[in-house]
Design a protein around this nucleic acid. Structure first.
Lengths: 152, 152
DNA sequence: TTGACTTATTTTACATATAAAATTAATTTC
DNA sequence: GAAATTAATTTTATATGTAAAATAAGTCAA
């Protein structure tokens, strides 16, 4: 008694397994290469990327939203970035509860080098996709992403 | 001075951002729903799924390979599953270094319930994808996945 | 102004992941 | 068969993530 619903479910499971595989494989390669060549993990890279986009800095809350992780997580992450000399935290004058995180000059420099490694490794990973394949995948993922934001 | 390579790189970055977004959003929804309804995280669910496929059990190394995580990680994970009463570990007769992990009856039962939740939530997540969209996405990801395994 | 929220952040307890060292048992080599 | 090597697993130190409680500062209503 198999029907169209079963085949749809099979496709959904397969889709998700591929997303998991692709994510794990590419994330792992990026992480290993960046750690080895620049001593910056993907997590730290993502945080540096946000701070790079906002030269005046971001509050802890804003950074936490941008990275889609909890406030508590960002507390520890920025503390580690400070210890690495890549970022700094300054207390707001207006609101003494609030802290602004921003890149240090060294953070900016290290991020730029990490970005080059990131792009190189990502390019290598996506080599197997032809231009039309990439465009096609981009389209489906874009639609899925838009849909996810709507369906809540 | 922009050329075809720049646009390719832009597409690669966009593709990766979508993979990250889709992964984080769906993984988060699965994790929250399964924890709330069955008290089983996605990590534990994945481990239970492997043990479910192999009723005779898997060695710690085999499980670690199947899950694509380190041996040390699986040590702790199986210990937590044991504490939950979902799995058990028995020492091999032939090789006293080796341990076989397998599901308990309760583990089997709880996994089946978690699978239903998993499928329901995943279906809801992928609702925005039409059948052709899903097939298309599946095709691109399959090609990328195959490619990743070759390029090493 | 004081008492009740709300907001920004950190802390705590825990789960999940890695890499590298340690442990313990099996295997090979001489 | 003792010594060296290999193999299976665990332990340790650390990074990364969550949820929930704690802290501390701002806001607002009475």
């Amino acid at each position: 008694m198999s029907d169209a619903g079963d085949s749809r479910r099979q496709d959904e499971r397969r889709f998700w397994l591929y997303v998991l595989d692709v994510h794990a494989e590419i994330y792992g390669r990026l992480n290993r290469a960046m750690k080895a060549e620049t001593d910056i993990s993907v997590t730290k890279f993502d945080a540096l990327a946000q701070l790079y986009r906002y030269p005046d800095g971001l509050t802890m809350s804003a950074l936490s939203e941008a990275l889609r992780v909890t406030n508590g997580n960002v507390s520890g992450l920025v503390a580690r970035l400070e210890k690495d000399g890549l970022a700094e935290r300054t207390m707001s004058e207006q609101d003494r509860r609030s802290f602004t995180a921003r890149l240090t000059p060294e953070g900016r420099e290290r991020f730029e080098r990490a970005l080059a490694v990131h792009d190189r490794v990502l390019s290598h990973c996506l080599d197997p996709l032809t231009e039309p394949d990439l465009a096609e995948a981009l389209g489906s993922l874009r639609r899925l992403n838009a849909g996810l934001k709507i369906t809540g």
